[in-house]
Design a protein around this nucleic acid. Structure first.
Lengths: 342, 342
DNA sequence: GTTAGCACTCAACGACTGTGAGTGCTAACC
DNA sequence: GGTTAGCACTCACAGTCGTTGAGTGCTAAC
């Protein structure tokens, strides 16, 4: 049996209806609501074929059909292939990021909020990860008598900071002198390289050992645990609005997965560097998400590294809308981060 | 009718049992499980009295009794009055915070995780809020050609940072010179005062207007929106484990409340500066939390300001355990933040 | 190839019933 | 007078059973 134009149209109608309502759709519904000029009986025959082809499932014999993962896959693929990611409410979206230059983390948090509130699904935004950042400036800022703040600015505009002990009292000029020296020595190094260079620096600039040791500790720690970057999640409670999650146990599993940021980041990031990814149901590879879909898009920053924005929703997700929103937000983030300052 | 010793003991038993099981408790259960040397009939009479006194409710005539908010209140008050907050697993708790000096936000996030995983309820930790912080150091760190990072260290060890544009190119020495001048001028000022002083500084150190203007913008913004501090939440999904929240609608309301950090912070903070607060059911003042209880404890930092840690759970919360845990963690946080560097 | 008609299936819903946990009351007991 | 055994009563809960209606598959006619 072959897939023909008409079958495709019917399948499309079924998917649309199911996405909208979430209940199995019957032949009469299709013949009435989506005037195809065909009677329910004909639709029925076609639906029977589509089921045989693996595009439709039947929860039980006297219920309508629901689209299978394979059907969604087809649906999404045509959506992606034709590149016709609609520009829905683009205008209304443009304004979401404005105002002053923000810190990356704030922007990411905000983006998760915006996406989740626009889609009514759960949104996840990952900070960029990619090539090893290179040190540009190291600066020690006095905090109180015996502690200082280390601020490391990298070429990706990323900032790491931590408080260290400086042992005996040190005035800000001394700290600045050390900062200058360190910056001169370490500019252009990755964190790892910086760690390796430290011993030789120890020898040259002796005397301030305590500071350097603390700094060494900080560097090697930061290098060992390549902090997974920031993971912002928004709208987790949105998922509970869908009947798919009216089972409290399922909901709890889902939510506790959302709480373990590390795992979540892995799942979302799992999708290579492609600009768009859609994983449907089992394709997610996560048992807890057997009936979820994950849509991700990439954005990039000055340093050429990629971050990820993603939406998690039920398999019957409004793919076209979600793709459109991710597309726009992704571009906006890219504009922001590639543009200039931070 | 008066409350006597025996009634109290029975009430205690009922509360204990209900906290444990979550189902209405009957007279036979009490007479058997908690050997009081009384028959179920006697217990029944006493329970009837306790109901009349307002300590027990009966969901329906042929069900057991459940403790009223008034009962919990009594229970908690005696718990607090006798000061016998048990030191359960203190030893196992001591180790949760260790290692290097951390940034305050990390500690707070961590604390929320620890508390929620120990209690199996939802934990909320608020960063300290109190007297206006006073500026101690201002430092500008070069990021790239035309942007710089402003780092402001306050007397509370708190750090605010933001990226600003510096207009034309500036080398790090110039920036350091400006930093020094600014620090000299503004040390000891609150953010608000700093804003007010800016115009006069404008006049004195002319020429670098772009930097100062940006800085002014940053300061006045930071002062207008006294950023609510950090709010860490842990274990939101824990709540779904309790039958009280098997209703998905209720669960969704609860979760979306947990997501609006501002509101949440207000609710948790609502409880003045007392060292312990227990608000039961309606006492929370939040309709969505009619059948939740909120337990909070305070911790303090060097600057003398208070932060709050809190646990949100069902009214039948294991109060004594929760109080004990909050007590210990609160002390640990205080030790950490009062101790020394950040 | 399309459609009308019909028999059939089966989840969902509501009415009904039996069961058991739990109560309140009364009368006997110490 | 307080305590207890006994008993009638209540009522949520769970299971059973018929009804309903949406939806299907098949067949025969168009």
């Amino acid at each position: 049996m072959e897939m023909d134009e008409r079958k495709l149209r019917i399948l499309q109608a079924i998917i649309d209806d199911y996405i909208l309502t979430g209940v199995p759709v019957g032949s009469r519904t299709i013949s009435k609501k989506y005037d195809m000029g065909l009677s329910s009986a004909t639709i029925r025959n076609e639906m029977s074929d589509l089921e045989e082809l693996g595009f439709l499932d039947q929860p039980h014999v006297s219920a309508g059909r629901i689209p299978s993962a394979k059907a969604y896959r087809l649906y999404v693929d045509t959506l992606l292939k034709t590149g016709k990611i609609p520009d829905d409410s683009e205008a209304s979206l443009r304004s979401h990021f404005s105002g002053r230059i923000h810190q990356m983390e704030d922007v990411i948090d905000h983006a998760a909020q915006v996406i989740s509130s626009l889609t009514h699904y759960t949104a996840v935004v990952l900070s960029p990860k990619g090539v090893q950042p290179r040190i540009q400036t190291i600066q020690l800022v006095p905090v109180n008598e015996d502690t200082a703040l280390v601020v490391i600015v990298t070429d990706q505009g990323m900032v790491r900071d931590s408080v260290i002990r400086v042992g005996r009292q040190m005035d800000s000029d001394t700290l600045y002198a050390i900062s200058r020296a360190l910056t001169a020595e370490l500019r252009g190094s990755t964190l790892q390289e910086a760690c390796e260079k430290m011993p030789s620096i120890f020898e040259r600039i002796n005397g301030n050992d305590r500071v350097l040791q603390e700094l060494y500790g900080f560097l090697s720690e930061g290098q060992k645990t390549p902090r997974r970057g920031h993971v912002a999640v928004g709208g987790t409670s949105n998922m509970l609005a869908y009947p798919e999650y009216s089972d409290v146990d399922k909901a709890r599993n889902f939510l506790s997965l959302m709480e373990t940021r590390d795992k979540l980041a892995d799942i979302i990031r799992g999708s290579g560097g492609m600009s768009f990814t859609v994983r449907i149901g089992p394709e997610t590879g996560v048992p807890e998400m057997a009936d979820c879909s994950i849509v991700t898009a990439a954005y990039s920053t000055r340093g050429g590294q990629q971050g990820t924005i993603g939406v998690i929703g039920p398999t019957r997700m409004q793919y076209s809308r979600v793709l459109s929103i991710l597309n726009i937000i992704g571009h906006q983030l890219t504009d922001m981060f590639e543009g200039d300052g931070e």
